[in-house]
């Protein structure tokens, strides 16, 4: 609840910034600016819904902290593909040089073999909201395990 409220107020500020009403100056105050082209704000995924989806669709092969059929996921967002120590990747993913940005994760989850032909992961999430939510969950689990 709290985080939803938090998110929606950020959303409002972002929308105001995007529409050119406000812009942060160097010391963090806001000053009026000239209206420019409106940037489309990316909707933020729901990490709680993403956790539920992860449990159902991903945990057969993955967990946050242990390599299993698939590699461990903690800290995956921003990491280089194929780089978890102790996990034996397929050649194509190991050599892919991809960085798991949110955009690349979105393409991966749409169809792993389309992004990386010859990969061993097949599971697809055709629904964009589901992809966004599961990526929000993965982003939240970035810190190394305490």
């Amino acid at each position: 609840m709290e985080s939803n409220i938090f998110r929606s107020s950020i959303g409002i500020v972002c929308a105001m910034m995007a529409s050119g009403v406000l812009a942060p100056d160097a010391i963090g105050q806001t000053i009026p600016v000239k209206k420019g082209p409106v940037a489309q704000a990316q909707p933020v995924g729901d990490a709680i819904a993403g956790a539920k989806l992860y449990e159902r669709k991903c945990t057969g092969c993955h967990s946050l902290d242990a390599n299993s059929v698939g590699p461990s996921h903690r800290g995956v967002v921003g990491r280089r593909a194929g780089s978890v120590a102790g996990y034996s990747y397929s050649k194509p993913l190991g050599k892919s040089k991809l960085i798991w940005t949110e955009a690349n994760l979105d393409l991966w989850l749409k169809s792993p073999p389309k992004l990386v032909p010859g990969t061993r992961m097949g599971l697809q999430l055709p629904d964009a909201t589901e992809r966004r939510n599961v990526i929000a969950f993965l982003s939240k689990n970035t810190a190394p395990k305490p």
Binding site: K57, T59, G60, V69, S111, P112, P113, G122, L123, P126
Partner: peptide, 18 residues
């Protein structure tokens, strides 16, 4: 239970990409 459930879901996820 955890492994069998995960496997059932994983197999269903394999239908579309094959």
């Amino acid at each position: 239970l955890r492994l069998e459930t995960g496997a059932a879901n994983a197999y269903l996820g394999l239908i579309a990409p094959l």
